[in-house]
Write a protein that binds this DNA or RNA. Structure first.
Lengths: 152, 152
DNA sequence: CGTGAAACAGACCGACC
DNA sequence: GGTCGGTCTGTTTCACG
């Protein structure tokens, strides 16, 4: 039932931190032989435990330095409303995260935009595609921590 | 003063999607010569616009399939409170995002844990290190969208 | 799991137009 | 920006203990 042992976890921990490391460099940090390490990495990729490798871009310098959390409450649901909502947020590249949540809120969104004006445009585009009644936004003043690394 | 042109943006867009592509493969998609593409990629890395490359791990299969948003209001601040808070959340690997925000809330946290029990343990560890009065949590029932790709 | 070896692809970098 | 061509590093597979 166990999909992964501690060695695999260690490999992932290393690659979550730096995905440019060569197989050899990863192997040295465990320690493990180059070949054994390669076989494990291959397996982790094939099983999909390792979903991929991506480049991280500095949002500030890419011109979208303002992060916004959008909180949505929605009492009434048309049958098609959810489908429209999903389609809308999925298509908007500024929306980087969408979560259906428990508790008071129904949905939490995270978006990245250039500035407050750009957020307003995004908001207009969103409510154009799908009706939203109870929406509130919190602008991120400071990003204290942000990591793609899953705890292992 | 411009840090980036459209070609750079296109390169980043490609590598945000798939960081395993060879220089040649990236170059073909623009189009651009292999060497020119390599020079740009190198520059983007050196300037820090490309912050790095990382492996993405399937959180579910890594045993932390529950995401939680934690909302914190804090009226009174000791002088050292903020420092303690930063230190605490930075050190906890389950906390994957921490944001100081405008509006009603003061801080938004995102954490990844195995289950609700694990969240409670995380919460206990957090308030042990730093006093928190007004805290509420929203568990993520469904991750509708989640991307590391910044809009370009 | 480990070693070694061999074949290949790709990164890297200078020189040049 | 593009082309050429070289070196070197790393990947990917073998076979074998």
């Amino acid at each position: 039932m166990t999909e992964m042992d501690d060695i695999d976890r260690k490999i992932l921990a290393v690659l979550q931190q730096d995905g440019t490391l060569s197989v050899e460099a990863v192997a040295e940090r465990l320690p493990l032989s180059r070949n054994a390490c390669w076989r494990r990495m291959k397996a982790l990729e094939e099983k999909g435990i390792m979903r991929g490798r991506v480049a991280l871009v500095d949002a500030e310098r890419a011109g979208c330095g303002l992060s916004v959390f959008v909180f949505i409450r929605t009492a009434n649901h048309d049958p098609g409303w959810l489908a429209d909502f999903r389609s809308a947020v999925t298509q908007l590249p500024e929306v980087v995260g969408v979560y259906r949540t428990s508790g008071d809120l129904d949905y939490v969104l995270k978006a990245r935009v250039r500035d407050v004006k750009a957020y307003d445009r995004l908001y207009q585009r969103l409510i154009e595609k799908v009706p939203l009644s109870d929406v509130s936004a919190s602008f991120v003043m400071e990003e204290i921590k942000e990591t793609t690394a899953v705890p292992l």
